[in-house]
Design a binder for these strands. Structure first.
Length: 533
RNA sequence: GCGCCCGUAGCUCAGGUGGAUAGAGCAUCGGCCUUCUAAGCCGAGGGUCCCAGGUUCGAGUCCUGGCGGGCGCACCA
C-alpha cells in the first residue's frame, strides 16, 4: 500500500458469492481509485506485483470486472481445516469472543393466565436459540422467564376462577368483566372443590387468594410442561410479586428521583424518558396514587444489572414493540450503557388451518396452543419452522401444509444429510467419534464438490459468531441447508466406502467433519440430529 | 394523524454492515433407484427486487417522498 502512496489502508478480503470469482476477493483497488485518481485495474496490477503471499497458499490471482482482485487457494491448504474440525469435535464452531460477558436472555414470559399459544412458541424457539448462540461464543448465559403474577390481569383470573368455583358448588356466579372464560378454569374449579368441598363457603377475599394461588400455580406448571416438551428449560423464573416483596418499587423510584429524572404534573409522577430517546415522558405513579405497570418493569430490569449481567436481552412480541424505547430510556436513565438493554422483536405468528386463518383469543377460550401445534407436526419441525425466518418477519404457519407435507419439510433435508453420514459409519462398522484425521492423506480430496464442501465447513465458526452478534439464528439454517445440499450432492456422486484404502480414509474424514458441523448447527437450533430416520 | 416493522419467483421466504450474472424450499415440467437410506440427485421454466427520485465507480441493500400490509400510539396490563 505504501508503494501506491496509500499507507495504512486496510485490505478487506471477502468470500465471493460466486465460486468462479475465486476463494477470496478484495475490492481495495476500486476503493482507492478515486482518492488516488488512478484507474482501478491499473492499481490492482500494482497491488498484485507487490503481493507477498506465504509459499504455496495462493495458486492464482486475477483482476476481474471493474477491478476486483480474486485469489485462489491451493487445494492442499484448504483441506487442512478438516484436521481442526475432527480434533475440535463438538466444540467446532465455538469461540471465546464473548468470554467474561454475562448475558440474561429473557423470553416467553407469558402471563400465567392460560396455556402457551403458537406465538409464545416462536418466542421460545428464538430466545432459546439466541441463548445457545451466545453460549457458543463464550458468553455466560442465563435463560430467564418473568412471571407477571401480580396486577389486574391476575385479579381477573382469580375472580374468574372464584366464579367457576361458585358455579361448581351450584351457586349463581358470573365471570367478571374482562375475565377468562376458558374451559380450563371450569376444570380447575371442579378439582379444587373435590379436594376441599367447603372451599366455596370461604369469605370472598380468602377465596380469591386461594384461587389466585391455585390458578397461577397450575398455569405455570402447565406452561413449564409445554416448554419442557418443546425442549426449552429456564435457569431462572423471576416473579413480579418478588419485585413487590422486596419493595423494589420504592427503591427504584428513589434512585430515579435522586438522579433528578422525575417530576410531578397533574397529580401524577412522571419519568423524563423523552430525554433518552422516547417520544414522550411516561407516568410512573398515577394520580390516584397507584403505580403504572411501567414502574415494576423498570424495577425488574434494574435487578438484571444488580444481579451482575452485562447485557439484558428481551424477546418480545411485536405487539409490545412500542414499549421498547421507554424501557431503553429507563435503563439509560438508571445509568446503564445504551446497549445494556436489547429488545428482540418477534412478529406474531398467523396460523392457517383448513384454508382459513385461525383466530386465537385467550379470553374466548378458543385458540391453537403451542402443544397442539407440536404434537401435530413434531417438535423438530416446529422449532425449525419458527427459526427459518427472521424474527421480525411476519409469517404464516399453515398447519395443514406442515402436517401433510411433513416428509418434505426442510428440517428433514438437513437431518437426512446427517443420518447419511451416520449410515456410512454404521456400514463401515466405525464409531463416529473414533474417526481421526491422523495419518490420513487429505490431499486426495480433489473433487470440486469436495473442495466446495470443505470451504463451507471452514466457515462455520465465523458464521456462528456473526449469527450470535446479530442474534439471528436463521442464518444458521441457511448455512445448514447449503452444507446439506453440498453433501447430498457429494454423497450421490462419490462413494466413501470401497474406493481404495487411502481415498476411503480421506473421505471418512470429510464425512465425519460434515457430520460434526451439521450436528452442531442443529443443536444450536434446538433440533435433534438423528442417527437414523 | 404520529411511530416501529415489512413489501424480492405462482406460494412461503433468504439475500453479513453497498459489489460481479438476485437465491432456496414448495408448486410446475423432464430425467435418475442391482452400489454407504430416492426423506435423495441432475436439469428446465418462472423476477418492472412495490413505485419515483437521490448518493456512489457500483444500490435488492444507504437517503428522501409516495403506495400497500402488520403492529403500536392510555395516569390498561
Amino acid at each position: 500500500m505504501a508503494a501506491l502512496g496509500a499507507p495504512g489502508t486496510s485490505i478487506q478480503l471477502d468470500r465471493p458469492r460466486d465460486t468462479s470469482h475465486g476463494d477470496l476477493a478484495t475490492n481495495v483497488a476500486l476503493q482507492l481509485a478515486k482518492p488516488l485518481k488512478r484507474p482501478p485495474r491499473e492499481l490492482a496490477e500494482t497491488i498484485i506485483a507487490h503481493l507477498e503471499a506465504p509459499q504455496g497458499l495462493v495458486t492464482r490471482t486475477e483482476i476481474a470486472g471493474p477491478g476486483f482482485i480474486n485469489f485462489w487457494l491451493a487445494d492442499a491448504a484448504v483441506v487442512e481445516v478438516l484436521r481442526d474440525i475432527l480434533a475440535a469435535g463438538d466444540s467446532w464452531g465455538s469461540s471465546a469472543t464473548g468470554r467474561g460477558r454475562r448475558v440474561n436472555v429473557e423470553f416467553v414470559s407469558a402471563n400465567p393466565t392460560g396455556p402457551l399459544h403458537v406465538g409464545h412458541g416462536r418466542g421460545a424457539a428464538l430466545g432459546d436459540a439466541i441463548a445457545a448462540l451466545l453460549e457458543a461464543t463464550g458468553h455466560d448465559v442465563v435463560r430467564e422467564f418473568y412471571v407477571n403474577d401480580a396486577g389486574l390481569q391476575i385479579e381477573r383470573l382469580a375472580a374468574s376462577l372464584w366464579a367457576r368455583v361458585q358455579q361448581a358448588a351450584g351457586r349463581e356466579a358470573e365471570i367478571p368483566e374482562g375475565g377468562y372464560h376458558g374451559a380450563y378454569l371450569e376444570q380447575l374449579a371442579r378439582q379444587l372443590l373435590e379436594q376441599e368441598p367447603t372451599i366455596a363457603e370461604l369469605p370472598e377475599s380468602e377465596g380469591l387468594d386461594r384461587c389466585r394461588d391455585a390458578a397461577v400455580r397450575t398455569q405455570r406448571e402447565e406452561q413449564n410442561r409445554d416448554l419442557a416438551d418443546f425442549g426449552v428449560e429456564f435457569d431462572v423464573v423471576y416473579s413480579e410479586s418478588e419485585v413487590y416483596r422486596q419493595d423494589l418499587l420504592a427503591e427504584t423510584l428513589a434512585e430515579l428521583d435522586g438522579r433528578g429524572l422525575t417530576y410531578e404534573q397533574d397529580g401524577a409522577l412522571w419519568l423524563k424518558t423523552s430525554e433518552y430517546g422516547d417520544t414522550k415522558d411516561r407516568v410512573l405513579r398515577k394520580r390516584d396514587g397507584s403505580y403504572t405497570y411501567f414502574l415494576p418493569d423498570i424495577a425488574y430490569h434494574r435487578t438484571k444489572a444488580q444481579r451482575g449481567f452485562d447485557l439484558a436481552i428481551d424477546v418480545w412480541g411485536a405487539d409490545h414493540h412500542g414499549y421498547v424505547p421507554r424501557m431503553q430510556a429507563a435503563m439509560v436513565a438508571l445509568g446503564q450503557s445504551p446497549d445494556f438493554f436489547h429488545a428482540v422483536i418477534v412478529q406474531l405468528v398467523r396460523v392457517m388451518r383448513h384454508g382459513a386463518e385461525v383466530r386465537f383469543s385467550k379470553r374466548s377460550g378458543d385458540f391453537v396452543t403451542l402443544r397442539d401445534l407440536y404434537e401435530e407436526t413434531g417438535v423438530d419441525a416446529v422449532r425449525y419452522f419458527f427459526l427459518m425466518r427472521r424474527g421480525d418477519s411476519q409469517f404464516l404457519f399453515d398447519i395443514d401444509l406442515a402436517t401433510k407435507q411433513s416428509e418434505e419439510n426442510p428440517v428433514y433435508y438437513v437431518q437426512y444429510a446427517h443420518t447419511r453420514m451416520a449410515g456410512i459409519f454404521r456400514t463401515a462398522g466405525l464409531e463416529a467419534a473414533a474417526i481421526s484425521a491422523e495419518g490420513a492423506d487429505l490431499s486426495l480430496l480433489t473433487e470440486e464438490i469436495e473442495q466446495d464442501l470443505i470451504k463451507r465447513l471452514a466457515g462455520f465458526p465465523a458464521l456462528v459468531e456473526k449469527a450470535a452478534e446479530a442474534m439471528e439464528p436463521h442464518r444458521i439454517i441457511a448455512y445448514l441447508e447449503e452444507v446439506s445440499r453440498l453433501v447430498n450432492n457429494w454423497y450421490h456422486h462419490h462413494r466413501v466406502l470401497g474406493v481404495g484404502a487411502d481415498l476411503e480414509r480421506a473421505r471418512l474424514v470429510l464425512a465425519r467433519a460434515t457430520q460434526i458441523v451439521l450436528a452442531s448447527g442443529l443443536t444450536l437450533l434446538g433440533v435433534t440430529a438423528p442417527e437414523r430416520m
